[in-house]
Amino acid sequence: MQYMLMYTEPESKFAERNDPKAAPDYWGAWSTYIGAMSAAGIVVNGDGLQPPHMATTIRVRDGQREVQDGPFADSKEQLGGYFVIEVAGLDEAMTWAAKSPSAVYGSVEVRPVLPPMKP
């Protein structure tokens, strides 16, 4: 089955990405984790995302486009990246979620991916 792992991080961790002192550890932890997933051959696809202040949220209401500067919800933790993995079941997906750096300082949401729609 395929699952999307959505990694959320607090503001302080987004800041570490560009902090000369903290950045090597921050990126090092992620590349170790991603390397392990690649070695296990479970990665379908995935990416890190630019920080939440780079987000633009669009809604169309009564035919009018409403544009908001920032993420859709203002919460302490924000989406920092995602991976879609192919594993046997939820237990294995949860195990991979727990291994990620953000499981320790943020959270990881695990969602089964809907199978492709029939034509």
């Binding site: 089955m1 699952y3 046997a88 079941g89 939820l90 237990d91 089964p112």
Partner: peptide, 8 residues
């Protein structure tokens, strides 16, 4: 049924 919980 749908989230891949295994009977084990």
């Amino acid at each position: 049924r749908d989230s891949g919980l295994e009977f084990r």
